[in-house]
Design a protein around this nucleic acid. Sequence first.
DNA 1: TTAAAGTCAATAAA
DNA 2: TTTATTGACTTTAA
Length: 595
Amino acid sequence: MLTQKGREPFIRMKMFLEDDNAVHKLVASQYKIAPEKLMRTGGYGIPPPSTSKPHHIKLPPDLPKTSLESPLPPVGIPSSLGLTLPPHPHAYDARMPLLDPLRKVFPFQAGLPSIRVPGPVAPSVYEMAALTQDLDTQVITTKIKEALLANNIGQKLFGEAVLGLSQGSVSELLSKPKPWHMLSIKGREPFIRMQLWLNDPHNVEKLQTLKNERREANKRRRGLDPSAEVSSDSHDVFQAPSPGGSSKKARVLFSEEQKEALRLAFALDPYPNLAAIEFLSQELQLSTRTITNWFHNHRMRLKQHPGSPDGGISSPPRDLPNPSQTPFDPLHFRIMLSQRLMELRKEKGLPPTLPGLGAGLPTSLHPGFFSPMPPFSMANLSISPSDRYASGGLDLSMKNEHDGDDSNASFIDDDSNISGGMSPNGNRSDGDDFGDDQDRNDSTSPVARPSSRRKPAAPQWVNPSWAVGNGEKEREVIINGVCVMQTDDYRQNSEQETVLIEPTSVEEARRSLLESVPTPEREERTCTSDNEVSTCPVSIKEDPINKEEDGDFPASSSSSSSPSKSENIEVNGGSEYQTEIVEEQPKIKSETDDA
DNA sequence: TTAAAGTCAATAAA
DNA sequence: TTTATTGACTTTAA
C-alpha cells in the first residue's frame, strides 16, 4: 500500500523503537545536552544488555531508601568494575554523598567485587536534574530546614551525608536557594537530592544513626588519644578528601576600607580591566589575583542575591553614579572613596578628617592614596583630561532597547553590557581602560589593549525553550517523588519593572566633591553630566530574582495535572515513574549521538 | 583567555 | 556549637 517514500517514516519509527537509547538521545537533544553527558552515569554508559525491549529507564524500587547499611566513605568507581564510563564532571566521584540514593543502584564499594547492574538502570541525580523541569527550591529548602531543626541535625552532617557538600555550601543553599530556572544542571543536583531525601520515610532515622556513629567514633578516638581533636571536623571519616591536597592560599581578610574601596570600584565598573585591577591592587595593597577574585565573587553573589543588604552594590554609597554609566576612572574613584571613607568615619563617630592629609590614613590603602597628585598619573595615559571626561565620564545615554530584551539577565548583566559606556550610536565602546577615549586617543597607551569584557553568559537554561518562553501550560510528572514540572514561563508574567533612580544625591555629592576639587575638567564634566542627569533619569531593570525572593517565587504546583504526553517508565520492582516527552520538535544530532 | 557557576573551607557571627 | 559569610579555587563554556 505504501510507496517507498511512505514507508520511510515507519522504518524510522521502528529504528527509534529498537534503539535502547533513542528516547534518551531525544531528551538529551531537547536539553541541548550532549547525550554522552546525559548518559554518563546510571548505566547509560554501560553497553545495554542483549535485550530488545523498548527503551526503559529503570529506577530501583527503593530509590528513596538510601543505603545506610553500608556507611562507607564515598568512593569512586573501582576500575575492577570494568566499566568504561565516559569522563564527566559529575560522574560518581569522591564527593558522592554517603547516603546517595543511587548507591543501591551502583553499589560500588571499595574492595568489593563489582556488581554488575542488570539492564539499563536508574537515571543519575544529574539526569534527574536535567529532566526535571521545575522544582520549587524555596519549598524544598524550607522543608529541609524544618526537618533539620526539628531533629537537631546539623547542616554539616546533612551536607556531607545527603548532598555531598560542605557545611558552607549547605548553608548557602538552604538560606538562599536560587530559583530552579536559574540553576545549571549541576546546581540542581543538590535540590534533587534534597527532594529524594524528603521522600525517604527513614531519612531522619538514617541521619540520626549516622550522627550517633560519628559521636561514637569521636568518643573512641578521644579515648584512644585524649589529645586528639574532639571536633568531628578534623578527623571526619566522611569528609570528602580534598582533591589534590590542600594548597589553597590562606584567605585574605579585607579591612573595612579595602572593602569599601572595592565596593566603590565595583559600583563604578563591575568589569574592571587589567589596568583598573592593577591600579586597585596598588591602591589597596592587594594582589591582582585577590582583586579579580573579589570582583568575580561579588558579581556572582550580587547576581544570586541582588536584594541582599550586605553592603554590595545593592547598597552602594548614595552618591554613586549608576555603575553602568561610568567606566573606571582612578581620579573619580579616589575622590568618591575619600568622600565615602570620610562618611564612614563620621558614622563611626570619628572626626571626619580627610585621611592622608592628616591623621586617619587607612593603613590598608596605598600611602599615596590621598596625595594631591595620584600615583597613577593621568599623564601616563597620554590623554588630555578633557578627552577623558568628554565621553569617558558619565555617559547617560539611554540603554539600548535591545539590551532590555534579555529579561533573564540580572541587574548586573544588564548594566555590565553597557558599563563601559555607550557610544552615541548605541554601540558599546570597548575601550576598556579607565575611559573609553583612551584607546581612541592613544593607541600607543601602555594600557591600551583589545577589550576582553564580554557579555556575561545567560543562565544555563536547561530547557532552551524556556529562554524564549513557549507559553506551554503547566504540566507535571513525577520522577521518583521528585516534582517534575513545567510551568508557564512566568517570566512573561513578571513584568520587567523599572526603577527610576533619582540623580539628586549623585548630583549633590558630586557638586560637593567638585567644590573640594576644583579642576577644569571636573567642571566640564559636571556641566555635561548634570544636564543629562537632570533630564535622563537612569533606569535600572529590576532583577526578576528580586521579585522571586520577595515572594513572587513560582510556586511548585503539587496538583497533578496530567502531562500532555508521557512515557511510563518501568522502575525496578514494577513501580513506575513518568518522564515527559517533549512536544516540540527536538533536533536530533545523530552524528553526535552516535559518537 | 575570560567569566560564570559551583564549591570548599576559614572565619565571623549568632 | 551551629550557621552565615566570603576569599580562593576548579570546572566549564563561550
